[in-house]
């Protein structure tokens, strides 16, 4: 019975930079907006140590502070953030019905801004030592490695940025990179400095084969130097994994929303998905450039388009974007 189910003009799935920015726009226009967040309000921006490239902050800003500011701004205009998860979505007449941890709700329009989560490396020991020597969040767990040795796995922006952050705690970091470093130039320069200072050693063309423990503790990572095909041991007290991101789109598997081959959401030029009334913005969108500034920009665009849609003024565009190669993070 639809009349017993709470109804909203817009429901946003996720409360990262994209959705919070969108919520500032919708709520300022008195569009009733509810956001669902299963993790941290502020999304991946909140777990990032320092953000140096978000315009308007000449000295950079702590990710947690930026996230908190975005939240406060959205809440100031009336955005409501529910701590919970959306697990499914289907059309119901003029509405979209969302299954959530707080029960079903109906929305006239939906913005999906669920971003992505860290991938696992998928080696033995990774699951066994999760949170007891194997970690995916440097700003959360780095403090436990004061004066200790670490291995960081990955070669993209996240791996380099988080390795640099971890040097404030660890005495030494072995950075295991499957092929070559794919981080931005500025991060590579910072990495060079850390290498020169003896804080980080970079091991290129090195796969991670196994995380080995003894007496309930991680003691080493076993890798392979793919150039010499020789096994290499990296003694360590802990491992941080940053091997890329996977889109948070599992909950759309049985929906009308079309995904690309990796699982990112395809949209048209209005950021509308293949399911009318459902829009996508930020990292979850196929072709996104995976930056806070762009997520915020897409959030604002989506909000303005959603208002048009709610007013019945949006002309449908059938074709979705071409599949786009996702940049390394």
């Amino acid at each position: 019975m639809t009349q017993d189910i709470p109804m909203h003009d817009v429901v946003m799935v996720g409360a990262g930079p994209a959705a919070l920015s969108a919520a500032v726009y919708t709520t300022r226009e008195d569009v009733d907006t509810l956001l669902f967040e299963r993790g941290v309000v502020g999304g991946l921006a909140a777990v990032t140590d320092k953000v140096d490239n978000y315009p308007g902050f000449p000295d950079g800003i702590e990710g947690l502070t930026l996230a908190d500011n975005l939240r406060k701004q959205a809440e100031r205009f009336g955005a409501v953030i529910e701590l919970g998860e959306v697990s499914g979505m289907k059309r119901e007449g003029d509405f979209i019905r969302l299954e959530t941890t707080s029960g079903d709700i109906l929305a006239r329009a939906v913005l999906i801004a669920t971003g992505s989560d860290y991938k696992k490396v998928g080696v033995s020991g990774e699951q066994e030592f999760y949170a007891r020597g194997v970690h995916y969040c440097a700003t959360c767990d780095g403090a436990f490695y004061r004066g200790k040795r670490l291995v960081v796995i990955g070669g993209g922006n996240s791996a380099v940025q988080e390795s640099l952050f971890l040097t404030r705690y660890a005495t030494h970091i072995d950075l295991l990179v499957r092929s070559t470093i794919k981080a931005s130039e500025i991060l590579q320069k910072d990495l060079e400095q850390a290498v020169k200072a003896g804080k980080i050693t970079v091991h290129l063309h090195t796969t991670t084969d196994e995380i080995v423990g003894q007496d309930n503790k991680v003691v080493k990572v076993v890798g392979t130097d793919t150039k010499t095909r020789s096994k290499v041991d990296f003694p360590t007290d802990g491992v941080f994994v940053f091997v890329g991101l996977k889109p948070n789109s599992e909950f759309l598997k049985n929906s009308e929303v079309e995904l690309d081959s990796i699982g990112f959401i395809k949209t048209d030029k209005h950021l509308q998905t293949s399911m009318p009334g459902v829009f996508a913005a930020g990292d979850i969108r196929s072709g996104s450039t995976m930056q806070i500034a762009t997520a915020v920009g897409e959030g604002a665009t989506a909000a303005l388009v959603i208002r048009e849609y709610l007013d019945g003024k949006l002309t449908p565009v059938a074709e979705t974007t071409e599949e786009v190669v996702v940049p390394t993070v």
């Binding site: 140590d49 947690l64 996230a67 908190d68 701590l83 700003t139 959360c140 403090a143």
Partner: peptide, 17 residues
């Protein structure tokens, strides 16, 4: 907690609520 832990802020937010 630690200074940089975003999930800690969420626990506090939940307990406050």
């Amino acid at each position: 907690t630690t200074n940089t832990c975003a999930y800690c802020a969420m626990v506090k937010r939940y307990l406050d609520s």
